[in-house]
Design a protein around this nucleic acid. Structure first.
Lengths: 144, 144
DNA sequence: ATAGATGCAAATGTTTTGCAGGAAA
DNA sequence: TTTCCTGCAAAACATTTGCATCTAT
């Protein structure tokens, strides 16, 4: 089993919450870590199934929710209606290819600053935001 | 009936497409225009029901889709999973209050410019985007 | 032994579709 | 009178919940 550090973090979290360490949780977390980003609940379920044929959708969803609570995963919803999960890291936004589904992360200090200024102008206390650019990635632009 | 100009535009569209002018379509469009912005399908249905008790959800959805195709309405999906409709006007983004649901529009040329630069940097051809700031509006910030 | 986890089936919530009857052109 | 609409019920679709059973502690 790879990702020892991460699994240790999960086990620590489970322990502090009085929750249990199970094969399913380990398997789901492992597959999630291997996928390294933007994997959908469905894909995750499929891949975990390769190792645990009887695992249910339910357990995948419940475990991902748990991982999010533990701060070990981040849930995103892009257009299309399915939840996707990423490994938490510094703040960023996304470019999404509407043809092939490719997702690219970007970071822009200037936009962050502008957002703060806008929030202040309207008296809003911003808790989170959503910023996604949808279009064609380089490969899909060339393809026609 | 108010909004004569808009209804004329709808009738013109229906005619060019060989579609029919019906009481339901008129009623839905009228209620949509009166709401002037960010009304949900459910609210729309409720309000139309005050005038046409037997109107179905289905007709409201189908009509809003038609209005979107005609360019007379714009569909938005903020967090929460319900479609909301607004009267089309120049490009803008939104601030959404997570407590009271208030929606405020904003426009920022600087962000638009930054988006273009980012798209170029990653070779994406951007078709549309989504930019929403979620937080507490002034009233809800004061309330506690 | 016991609190907690699992997996199935059924429920949820929003939107869409099939279809038979109804209305506009 | 033909083409298009409407409204109901049922389907879709992603996710959640109820519950009886199983398992880690």
């Amino acid at each position: 089993m790879a990702h020892e550090v991460e699994h240790a973090a999960l086990n620590r979290y489970l322990e502090t919450k009085g929750l249990k360490q199970t094969r399913q949780r380990e398997a789901i977390f492992e597959v999630f870590l291997e996928a390294s980003g933007h994997i959908s609940g469905e894909d995750l379920h499929q891949r975990v199934r390769d190792r645990y044929p009887h695992i249910g959708y339910t357990t995948v969803y419940r475990t991902m929710k748990l991982l999010c609570d533990a701060g070990l995963a981040h849930e995103r919803h892009f257009d299309g209606g399915v939840a996707r999960y990423e490994i938490p890291h510094e703040h960023h936004d996304h470019l999404v290819c509407v043809r092939c589904g490719k997702i690219v992360e970007f970071e822009c200090k200037m936009i962050e600053t502008a957002q703060e200024e806008i929030a202040q102008r309207y008296g809003f206390q911003v808790l989170r935001h959503r910023h996604e650019l949808y279009g064609h990635c380089p490969a899909c632009t060339d393809a026609r």
